[in-house]
Design a protein around this nucleic acid. Structure first.
Lengths: 197, 197
DNA sequence: GTCTATAGCTCGATAGAC
DNA sequence: GTCTATCGAGCTATAGAC
């Protein structure tokens, strides 16, 4: 049945996030789902197969989440705030295990793993979505640059939050990102003072 | 002889950076240094011993580098620019393997490894050094906040540079960090426009 | 050089649904 | 009978340790 398959994917997803892909073994996943290793291999022939299934699952869920934000918030600004606020909502997990997207991309890059590009695709989902929001805000020229900038800042905050376990730091950076967004004028260089009259 | 020991540490250092700690095996290191595994165990009893030696080596080199910047640059601003510019100087390695500090901290956190705190200590070296530079710039109150902010931004840039392999992005972010630093007034909120006259 | 543990993986057998 | 999910023994390679 497909139920077991889903359970395996969900368990692997969580374990890959908590302890990394390479450090997670078959027995590890099988024990979590409470099935035998034999049954396991009936659903996934190789470890790479599970990884791909986990990444596909994350891609789907990310698309759903972004679509949900699109639905829940009226303005592009509010949608971007929804993105920034993941850091607050998921602060406990982030302090323990970092960003699920960034840490997976980093690990697969080090392993020179074939699924690396698939993992990067999750990052690209956020990048493209943010770019569209900035475009809708009236920044057609700087949209991608701003998207990457914001993405980088959230990644950096996640990395340091994991290292230092500092919740106040997360909150402070989130507040600064909100302020940056609020004064983010169309196609301006937001780090220079407003243009002279 | 201590020469072999140093060679082992240097080889392990590089391999841990390129492919990660867990993914690097003894044989891997031994092959690189061209010694037998037996000889290897004469210098390091366990893998954790090598890791600790590598981290100690990095701590020493980082302290030396920071002291060098202190010596080479007259103003705290110039010293902070020297820090920001690592992203440019090491861009090729960063695009391939990420930041050596950040990726190690992240990996050891996932492995729940005992040396995690030692690795974080490297990050702390930068944090403390940056904080002192900001203090010297006249930001006694915001110094640590600014240090963490800058550290986070460099970490985020490294993560995305590795995922997207985009050198132009690195250069753009470095330029923005320089501008942020230039308009970084003592204990001000640097994300608001300059105060009105 | 050898030993042990474990990782990833294969495969034959069983049990039940249809 | 076929098909699918399940189990668990067991194989090979290699990592870490001594």
């Amino acid at each position: 049945m497909t139920r077991t398959r889903e359970q395996i994917i969900d368990a692997a997803d969580q374990l890959f996030y908590e302890q990394g892909f390479e450090h997670t073994s078959f027995s590890n996943i099988a024990d979590t789902v409470k099935i035998s290793r034999g049954n396991f291999y009936h659903h996934f022939k190789t470890k790479d197969d599970i990884l791909q299934a986990v990444i596909d699952s994350r891609l789907t869920r990310t698309r759903q989440m972004l679509a949900q934000w699109e639905q829940d918030s009226a303005t592009p600004q509010a949608r971007i705030v929804a993105f920034i606020d993941i850091l607050i909502r998921n602060r406990a997990e982030i302090m323990r295990h970092g960003c699920p997207v960034g840490t997976l991309c980093t690990e697969l890059a080090k392993l020179d793993h074939g699924a690396r590009e698939s993992a990067n695709q999750i990052m690209t989902l956020f990048r493209d979505w943010l770019r569209e929001q900035f475009k809708a805000m009236g920044c057609p020229r700087d949209a991608d640059i701003k998207a990457l900038h914001l993405l980088a800042r959230t990644q950096g905050v996640a990395t340091l939050a994991q290292a230092f376990g500092d919740e106040a730091f997360i909150r402070h950076e989130v507040e600064q990102m909100r302020q940056w967004l609020a004064q983010c004028t169309p196609d301006s260089n937001h780090h220079r003072p407003p243009r002279k009259a």
